[in-house]
């Protein structure tokens, strides 16, 4: 039997909001160590890797490893039915055809159960090599979301250029161009708003605004975002999920024709 309980359904609601624009369906791999999801978007341009550790759940039991193919749209619909203060429990049998989502109100007076059919999926699982990145930028997730939103109005790509001095985001389009420069924070006491750059080598790469716009849907999960960039490899955009895990988005760069 598989059972995982979270006191705050809001975490799972935010996780679904962070993936539903990219993924139609995904396999949830459940084991003793927790729940892992790795899935590409339909166009195979980006990859989402979600990790929720078992010790981050309020209750977690997984008697045998399970691979559950889930419709993200259906799961998102179900999670919209949970109140923000509700406790959520995911439950499945050992060889499941369905998974149950059980929502319990904080006063325990309302109990709602939603059962979702699982789907058979034949997903390709990609091996992500251990990569040493030339630049790692930590910054406010809200600032990053704002930059993506603002610059997306001017072009279909955002070029990220990172040097020792700071990080520069640029978009160029038919109507004009836009750029935002962020200097590395000198005094990092305002931790959440600080811009911290670890740089071995300067980098400059372009990425599709469409995908970056999907990634920043994870902003409510964490006040900080970490961007890992190396020339000619996918960008990694990482948000921590409280004490329970993290979501990483990998995005293949755009290259000059």
């Amino acid at each position: 039997m598989f059972e995982a309980r979270l006191i705050q359904s809001s975490i799972l609601k935010k996780v679904l909001d962070a993936v539903k624009d990219l993924l139609n369906e995904a396999t949830f791999e459940c084991s003793d160590s927790g729940i892992q999801v790795q899935a590409m978007d339909n166009a195979h341009v980006s990859l989402v890797a979600l990790n929720l550790r078992s010790d981050g759940f309020d209750k977690y039991r997984c008697d045998r490893n399970l691979s559950m193919g889930m419709s993200i749209a259906t799961m998102s619909k179900i999670l919209k039915c949970a109140g923000p203060e509700d406790t959520v429990t995911l439950r499945a049998a050992d060889n499941p055809d369905t998974v149950a989502f059980i929502f319990e109100s904080s006063n325990k007076e309302k109990l709602a159960e939603y059962e979702m059919k699982l789907i058979n999926m034949d997903q390709e699982h990609l091996g992500i090599p251990e990569t040493f990145y030339s630049c790692v930028v930590k910054m406010s997730s809200h600032e990053f979301a704002r930059i993506v939103r603002d610059l997306s109005q001017f072009g279909e790509n955002i070029t990220i250029a990172c040097t020792k001095e700071g990080v520069k985001f640029t978009a160029i389009g038919d109507s004009g161009s836009a750029n935002v420069k962020l200097a590395q924070t000198a005094d990092a006491s305002e931790e959440n708003d600080a811009v911290i750059i670890e740089m071995q080598e300067s980098v400059k790469l372009s990425f599709s605004c469409r995908y970056l716009t999907c990634f920043v849907k994870a902003t409510p999960l964490c006040s900080q975002v970490q961007l890992s960039i190396s020339n000619d490899v996918p960008l990694v955009c990482e948000y921590k999920i409280g004490d329970i895990g993290q979501i990483r988005y990998y995005l293949a760069p755009k290259i000059d024709d």
Binding site: M40, V45, L126, G127, Y250, A252, K254, D256, D257
Partner: peptide
């Protein structure tokens, strides 16, 4: 013009 690479060009199928 820039063209979009595929993520599978970087990560191998396991």
């Amino acid at each position: 013009a820039k063209s979009q690479r595929n993520i599978m060009a970087y990560f191998k199928v396991r």
